[in-house]
Each structure stands twice: as structure tokens, then as C-alpha cells.
Design a protein around this nucleic acid. Structure first.
Lengths: 117, 117
DNA sequence: TTTGATACTTACAAAAATGTGGGTACTTCC
DNA sequence: GGAAGTACCCACATTTTTGTAAGTATCAAA
């Protein structure tokens, strides 16, 4: 019975670690939060997420797509038209990520005050 | 009225981004989850969190301490005895992080199945 | 007619994260 | 007496992440 049977992020060899890393990656978090507003095109996402480069946005979207959290729909037209959505599982994960971000945003005053002590 | 007045992680210049990065960092996430079990010493933490190096554990603990999420208590004896705890705010944040990790662990089967398609 | 928008990819470079091995000062266990 | 445990720090090297700039094909607006 390998360690992997009961998923555990504290276990070095558990593949949940990899997924957690995708989800909690610098831009992955923000992609999930941004997509909570609904379907978005690549450029719209890029404008919404301050500071992300095209390269990083593409890469983050690809990883989340591979994990089945994000759905990519490409319309083969010129100029290109591609839409991104959360999958049902993506919605679930995005909610948790959003709760975390909101918690930090809500306590930012306290945190910043502590940092300057 | 600067952008920073209403914390928003999607905003490039909002300091909540920095805190979010500490919390969602590779080892930061796991430190918070591990500390949910209660007070732990450095070595215990290191054993609990699979794959973390001393260097990275120290660094992660320092960042979370600066943000006021983790409390470090050093007893000046030889050999050294140092205890780590979550602060009240740390408990709150750790709950969200744990919910996220649990969500991923719980859906890992589905995710891994999707990845191999 | 030049510019900008679309959704990327690729090569290259820079920056950040992470690991490695060593050292510390003492105690207890074998 | 030698080894291991404690909680680190430091310098160095490597790995990973991230950014930058350019290129692609086509259309529409100025």
C-alpha cells in the first residue's frame, strides 16, 4: 500500500503537492480568482491580473487546464478568439483560494502594522 | 486616494500580494498546515513536512513570523529549544489554507485522471 | 499606411528560489 | 570517547521561475 493512496500534502511524494503548487503559484492563484467573474478572454485576463506577463499567463492557464480546473475554448477565427472558464472543480478550488485571499485582504491592516513593529 | 486603501490581490501594487505570496509559497502553505496540530519545535516541523530543508524552513518561518501569522518562542538554553505556534490570525489563515489543501486532496483522483487523458 | 488588437510561441537573459555542505556550542546516550 | 541531537547561520552552486523582446497572420480603425 503506497503512500499515495491517501492523499497528503505533507508527504513529499504525494502528487497532491504538485497540484497544490499549481494552484498556489504566484499567478495561478490570481487566475482562479479572476475567472470567478465568469468567462474571460486571454487579453481581458491579462488586463485584470495586474503585472502578469503573456508568457506567465499562458503557462499558468496551461497548468490549470491540465489539472482540469480551467477550460479553454478556442474559436478558430482570425484574429484568434479564445475563452477561458472555470470547470466545476475549478469553481470549488477557486472558492477556497478566494476565501484565503479575502482573509488576507481583510486583515492586511493588522498584518502591515505587525510588519513595521 | 491611493489604490492601496482597498486591499486587492489583483492589483499589482497592493501589499496583500506580498503576504499572499508568503502564505502560498511552496513551504509556507505546509508550515501553516503542520502548525494546526499545535506547538511544534523546529526539528519536529522539519520531520513533519516532507522534503523541506533547514534553510527553507527557517526562511518560511521567518516570513510568516514577520507577517504575524506565526509566533516564535526561544528558550535560551543549551541545547537550543525553540517553539513555534500559530497566532490567532495565523489560525484563521491556516484554516483557509487547510480547506484548500483538503479540497485538492479530496479531488486528487479526478485531477490525476484528467491529467492522463 | 501605420497602428493596434488578437492569442499566442520561441529564444534568450535576469532574478529568485532552493539545495548543499560546513560550522556552532553544548548535552546526553552508547 | 565518539556519535547524535538541537536550532540554526553562512557561503556557494544549482535549479527554477520569471521577464523581455521579437515574431506570427489577419482584420479594423485612424
Amino acid at each position: 500500500m503506497p503512500d499515495d493512496l491517501i492523499p497528503d500534502v505533507l508527504n513529499d511524494r504525494c502528487p497532491s503537492r504538485m497540484v497544490l503548487n499549481h494552484v498556489t503559484s504566484r499567478w495561478g492563484v490570481l487566475v482562479l480568482i479572476a475567472l470567478q467573474d465568469g468567462t474571460m478572454r486571454f487579453s481581458a485576463l491579462r488586463r485584470r491580473i495586474g503585472g502578469v506577463s503573456e508568457r506567465m499567463l499562458t503557462q499558468s492557464l496551461r497548468l490549470l487546464e491540465e489539472d482540469g480546473l480551467v477550460l479553454r475554448t478556442a474559436h478558430p477565427v482570425v484574429p484568434p478568439h479564445v475563452e477561458y472558464d472555470l470547470t466545476p472543480l475549478g469553481v470549488e478550488v477557486a472558492e477556497k483560494v478566494h476565501a484565503l485571499a479575502a482573509c488576507i485582504e481583510g486583515n492586511l491592516g493588522q498584518i502591515m502594522a505587525h510588519r513595521t513593529e
